[in-house]
Amino acid sequence: MGALLWLLIPVGAGLVAAAWSSWALRNRKAGDVAELAGYARFRDAMEKEHPASEPVRAGSDSA
């Protein structure tokens, strides 16, 4: 009887792993529209030319 109890541990772990993997590989209904739009805004911002500004010195007080 003790051997059967020890056998239940890996079987239970296998069932938990199967349930987790099916949950992790599920089809998500929400698309990547918001993420792609954010990435497009990021690309646009990086491609803009910004005016050169003076570098900030480590010891200067700007306030």
Rank of each mutant, 00 (worst) to 15 (best):
E47T: 03
W6M: 12
F42K: 12
G12M: 06
Y39N: 11
R41V: 07
A30H: 10
A24M: 07
S53W: 00
R26L: 06
G38R: 15
D44C: 03
N27A: 13
S62V: 10
E47Q: 10
A18H: 05
A3F: 09
W20M: 11
D44A: 11
A13S: 07
G12N: 03
A3V: 01
S62M: 07
L8R: 08
L36T: 11
A24I: 02
W20G: 04
P51W: 00
W6R: 12
V56Q: 06
F42Y: 15
L4G: 06
E47I: 00
S60I: 10
N27I: 08
G31W: 05
L25H: 08
H50D: 09
A3E: 08
K29T: 09
E47Y: 00
P10Q: 00
L5F: 09
G59Q: 09
L5S: 05
A45D: 07
A52H: 02
R43C: 00
K29I: 12
S62N: 06
A13V: 10
A34E: 15
G14R: 02
G59C: 00
F42D: 08
E54V: 06
A58D: 10
S21G: 02
A19K: 12
E54P: 00
S53F: 01
K48A: 11
M46P: 00
E35W: 14
G2N: 14
A34M: 10
M1G: 13
R28A: 02
V16G: 05
V33T: 12
A24D: 10
V11H: 04
K29S: 11
R57L: 08
G38Q: 14
G14W: 03
A34C: 03
I9H: 00
R41E: 11
G59T: 09
G38V: 08
W6Y: 10
K48C: 02
G12Y: 09
W20N: 04
L8D: 01
R57K: 13
A45V: 00
G38S: 13
I9K: 02
E49G: 10
A30M: 06
L25A: 14
V16S: 08
A18W: 15
V56N: 00
A52M: 01
H50S: 09
L5R: 10
L36H: 13
E49K: 15
R43T: 03
G59K: 11
K29D: 07
V16C: 09
G12L: 13
K29L: 11
P10R: 02
S53A: 08
F42I: 01
A58Q: 04
A13Q: 07
V11K: 02
A52C: 01
E49H: 11
S53C: 05
A18Y: 13
E54G: 01
A52S: 07
A30K: 12
H50Q: 09
G38N: 14
L15Q: 05
A18T: 10
A19H: 12
Y39L: 15
V16P: 01
I9N: 00
M1V: 06
